[in-house]
Nucleic acid binder design. Structure first.
Lengths: 134, 134
DNA sequence: CTCGTAGTACGGTGAATCTCGTACTTTCCA
DNA sequence: TGGAAAGTACGAGATTCACCGTACTACGAG
């Protein structure tokens, strides 16, 4: 079995090497609600998921776009399996580069959700000038 | 002394209440190199700094823009002091909402810097197809 | 071989972002 | 009173981003 044969069964898609992963890029990737949701679902135990299994509220093209942003930023890894793209979190790589970052983001997302919708949308003028107290 | 008198000496600028701070917005605010640099300098001990003291490599207007993004996302607080705008990190608010998030970002930024420039810029085609090894 | 499924590529649109320069306001000092 | 210093407001230009639809490429089932 040539390397090509193995590749045909499970082609890894292009992704940055650990040394090329940049913090700003990772933060940007996580700063989108849809991508954050993807990351949370991946972290929630399901080791591998095809893209369509997420039931994202966007079109197929947009879905592909978000998965690519995540992959190219170094947050996830993807490989083909049949006609599907299986995605996994690059947990160990991220933890090695930015210790505790992923965990705190996931924890923060869960906490925010648990806190309830709260003030969901926030109008441009919704900024308090005497915020907490004095 | 009326509240107005106190206000004249140190006007707090508009900022979101803790309940209105959104994770995605905070991550977006931190996902910019210049803003991340501001946050790092604020965290590095200097409790209060005027905007110009950072020596940012951008114009005054751009500087104002970045400080506003940070303030409106809930990352920093600003108040006037004479003709200057003093900025402070909203550490306790952020830590209460997203435990360990700020610390891990700061730590990650320091680690990335310590790691050296590494592969600084990364061209679009710079993604390895057999990334770590196999 | 043909069809359906999963995903990508490409092109386009509208909104948001980053950047700047110039003009204006506010504050302090001489 | 006049001027310098620190920011803000207001466009304007260039880039990026999120989103879509359509057309295309793999792969597996029948």
């Amino acid at each position: 079995m040539t390397p090509a044969a193995t590749e045909a069964l499970s082609t890894p898609l292009a992704e940055p090497a650990p040394a090329q992963i940049r913090l700003a890029t990772v933060l940007h990737a996580l700063a989108d609600p849809i991508r954050l949701r993807i990351v949370r679902e991946l972290a929630a135990g399901h080791c591998e998921m095809s893209c369509i299994a997420f039931g994202l509220p966007v079109s197929k093209s947009t879905s592909t776009h978000h998965f690519r942003v995540l992959r190219e930023s170094g947050v996830i890894r993807q490989h083909r399996r049949g006609t599907a793209r299986m995605s996994v979190l690059r947990r160990s790589d991220l933890d090695a580069l930015f210790p505790a970052l992923l965990d705190s983001v996931l924890l923060g997302a869960a906490a925010e959700e648990a806190r309830g919708p709260g003030e969901e949308a926030h109008a441009p003028g919704d900024l308090a000038d005497a915020p907490t107290m004095e």
